[in-house]
């Protein structure tokens, strides 16, 4: 009996110790996160002040410890990704003084997976030496999707004039998320918005990027090129994207070529398009030129549904 009680006592002590240890680990992790975010905020302010400093003698931003240097890298990335038109040469001194390129290269070398992708994203916000560019070049062909796309984005940011050549040479297809990451570079003015050569190229990635530019920047004069893609392109994904782009621009979709393409789609795809066009605000009459009576009835039900009513009310 005594032995049983002793065992129970030992088990209870072990559970208590585990709970206390776990609590301590959680607390220390929270403190570390708090400290890191405090540092990041501090450096965001410092970086902004440095960028707005019009005096000839630059203010020095000093990051001594590794945690401070990482926070500084994150702050520079944060500021650069949220702003455009900044003179990045003003940060060169800070980057050199704190040896941020070395730190990030070291981190990239000794990390894997998403951690490596994170460091690769950060390195894109600082000017890079040829050694770093070489390393990024290799990583842009990595088997890991997150790593290769982060390396590619950083390469494009560092050498924007090579963007189109690099994208055209890629052996893999972009996902919608990859394209949106490239679009964010366009919004920061890193790559020019020259959509026409992209739409006319036969390369999947370039065409998808061109269509994304048209859609994101609302370029309705690209109507003709989109129609050309719909009528002549053999890739289903590109054609679907082109039709969705035309509809998001509010362009008429009743042309014979589009109708023929729509007729070749399976019922699920047609239903999905019908739903999308109804949500985009196309009239029942416009939908009737593309879809069968049954599909139009479905769209009509959607338009009249209470959900649609709620959406309309919140916008007025």
């Amino acid at each position: 009996m005594l032995i049983i009680y002793t065992y129970i006592f030992i088990i209870l002590i072990a559970i208590l110790a585990t709970v206390i240890m776990t609590q301590r680990v959680i607390n220390s992790r929270d403190t570390a996160i708090d400290k890191a975010s405090r540092l990041k905020k501090f450096y965001i302010r410092q970086v902004i002040n440095r960028l707005q400093d019009e005096s000839r003698i630059p203010t020095h931003i000093i990051a001594k410890s590794r945690a401070e240097r990482i926070a500084l890298c994150e702050a520079i990335y944060f500021v650069r990704s949220h702003t455009y038109g900044i003179d990045s040469s003003l940060l060169e001194l800070t980057i050199d003084e704190n040896r941020l390129e070395n730190l990030l290269l070291c981190r990239i070398r000794y990390s894997t997976g998403y951690q490596r992708a994170h460091w690769l994203t950060l390195i894109g916000s600082i000017p890079l030496s040829s050694k770093s560019l070489q390393q990024l070049e290799q990583l842009s062909y990595s088997r890991n999707h997150a790593i290769r796309i982060s390396a590619l984005i950083s390469l494009i940011t560092a050498t924007p004039h090579t963007a189109i050549r690099r994208i055209a040479a890629l052996p893999y297809r972009f996902s919608p998320l990859d394209i949106s990451r490239i679009i964010s570079l366009l919004r920061r003015g890193i790559i020019p918005i020259a959509y026409e050569p992209l739409l006319q190229s036969g390369n999947f990635n370039l065409q998808m990027l061109g269509i994304a530019i048209v859609r994101n920047f609302g370029i309705d004069i690209a109507d003709k090129q989109l129609h050309d893609i719909i009528s002549s392109c053999s890739d289903k994904t590109i054609v679907h994207e082109a039709i969705l782009t035309l509809s998001s621009l509010g362009r008429p979709l009743g042309r014979t070529k589009i109708r023929q393409r729509m007729n070749r789609m399976n019922s699920d795809e047609r239903k999905s398009f019908c739903r999308y066009l109804a949500a985009e605000g196309y009239s029942v009459q416009a939908l009737r030129t593309l879809f069968s009576e049954k599909e139009v009835n479905y769209a009509e039900t959607l338009i009249k549904s209470y959900k649609r009513d709620l959406v309309c009310r919140q916008y007025t």
């Binding site: 702003t83 038109g85 994101n216």
Partner: peptide, 26 residues
């Protein structure tokens, strides 16, 4: 958010200025 319709709706709601990220500091 860059969607034209959403921006117009916000301006109609009564906001005075709408800017999109990334922003120009100046």
């Amino acid at each position: 958010r860059h969607a034209e319709q959403a921006i117009l709706s916000l301006l109609e709601c009564g906001i005075d200025q709408y800017m999109t990220f990334p922003i120009c500091m100046e």
